[in-house]
Every structure is written in C-alpha cells, then in structure tokens.
Design a protein around this nucleic acid. Sequence first.
DNA 1: ATTATTTTGCAACATAGTTGCAAGGTGTTA
DNA 2: TAACACCTTGCAACTATGTTGCAAAATAAT
Lengths: 139, 139
Amino acid sequence: MEIKETDKLKKHQLSITDARKKILAFFLQTPGALAHADIEHKSGTEFDRVTIYRTLQTFVEKGIIHTIPTSDNSIRYALCKDECVTGHHHDDHVHFICDDCGTTYCLDHVSVPKVKLPKGFKAVQTDLVVSGSCNKCEQ
Amino acid sequence: MEIKETDKLKKHQLSITDARKKILAFFLQTPGALAHADIEHKSGTEFDRVTIYRTLQTFVEKGIIHTIPTSDNSIRYALCKDECVTGHHHDDHVHFICDDCGTTYCLDHVSVPKVKLPKGFKAVQTDLVVSGSCNKCEQ
DNA sequence: ATTATTTTGCAACATAGTTGCAAGGTGTTA
DNA sequence: TAACACCTTGCAACTATGTTGCAAAATAAT
C-alpha cells in the first residue's frame, strides 16, 4: 500500500523517493509521535542517519509533520492534520506524553484554550503539553 | 551580595559551593530562562561543563529551578516560585518564547487552564508554551 | 583540627545534529 | 525512452551535547 504515501508526498510538492515513502509510512502506521531515534531503529541500516535528519526537516517545512515540545531534550514528530501547508502549521491541539510508557499522543479533540497575554506579546503558536499516565498505563 | 544565594541554597538543603552560588546568581540576575549553553558562556572556563550539568540537575531535583519544554531541542531552566520543594514542582504557569530574540519569559500571572482529558488519562503536569513576538520585538 | 561526606575536574565515552561534496536517483522535455 | 537538469542520498568529517567513573579538592560534622 504505497499509494497513500505517494499521494501525500505529491500533495506537498515533494519528489517521490524510497526514504520519504518509508519514513512517511512509519508515521502513518504509528498512532503517537516518533523521535528521530525511533525512526533510526525502525529502519535499521536502510538509510543513513543524515537522510533521516534531512527527511524530517523537509517534512516539517512542507507541513507533513510537526514537532512536539518536550522537557527531555528529544524532539518528537507527529503527522499534521491535512490543512497544514508549507510554512503554515495549524496544530494547536493538546499533546499528552505518558511518563510510564513514553508514548506521545495527539489529542485532536481537545482544543487549546486561548490565553490572554500581557500587553505587547503576540502569540503565533500555542503548545499545550500534558504529561502523566495514559489510559493503558493507569492502575 | 552573596547572602541571597547562600540563603536559598540552605533553604533547599544544599551545601554551599562556589559553583552553586555563581550559577544560582545567574538565575537571580536573569529575568528569563537560561539554557545550559548560556551558563557555559557566562561562566567562561570557571567551571567544568560537567559541573554545570550536575548543578542544574541538582537544582531541578531540589526545586530551585524547573525545565521549560521547547521544540528546538534545547532545555531551558528558570527559577521556581518559592513554594517548590524537592520532588514537587508547582510551576503551572505559561511560558513565552520569543521567535525573534529567543528570550524565554515566565508569565507568572497567566495561569494554565485545566484541560479535560479523555477517559483513563491522568495529568500530572501541564505545560503551556506560547511562541511569537515579545513586547520588545513587536513592530 | 580531624574525619566523613559531597562536590568538582578530568578523561573518556556516547549520543545527537550539521556541512560539503561526489555519486546516484527523480522528474522533465523532446 | 534518451538525454538533460535538478534534487536527494550516502559518506566522511566535524561540532555540539550529554553521561559515567574515579581521584583530588572542598565542604560539613564532630
């Protein structure tokens, strides 16, 4: 089933390559988010580390994936909703990181409340990151 | 004016050392947040890199500073409010990162709204990170 | 002042991320 | 579908970031 990947790449004006198809497939298969290291492990020695870095960068630029801020120095990436295009992300939903299993969820149906900022501060992006225990890890 | 630093270290049950006093002083002098690299540059060759890493870790554990999640793989640290103690942070305020000048602000007076999570998800910590342009960088 | 405990610096290592360049693959045009 | 231009990949080398063990130095306790 490569059609889905190819389609998505075309829609975002990217040429079709093995690396991009495979890496995009990982995201389509994964409900949560992925870090660079996850992809490196999943793909084994198939691609060079550098290729993965560059592919992720390209995907972010083209609006295919977005980054999720964390406190542990590991950038995670997750698929954008379809409306994201080059240079314009619309991912103001809530992210949940489970402290037990480490899974990162995009909670699409929980929306980020608007916050009132002090005078002179202009918000471009708002990230709400909740951490705790997820529905699989609760006792 | 070393009294302030010494006092704060004592209050958090830490022994008084040069590195801790100096690094704590940087935080007391800075309105925003600091990354490891900032401290390394500020202190020059006075302390070993390892000492800075360990000091920051200790400060986080003892509730003197807290980490701020970012999307760019650079952990930033900021002073906690006085109520934080070992293993118990109470820093549910909003953080603002300026895309222009890079300054990170703790917006103490903007509180993080409670979010409703799906069934089975339990929140332990909530981080709201807003990015955009700050009151010094707006046109 | 002496001792026990912590903290520091050093060295070595491990991981993460970047850049330049040549070789190979992709897309385009005729 | 062949030839070309352009983009992407892999490699090598490098920089930055973070960790661990251990001996020496500093701090705290007696």
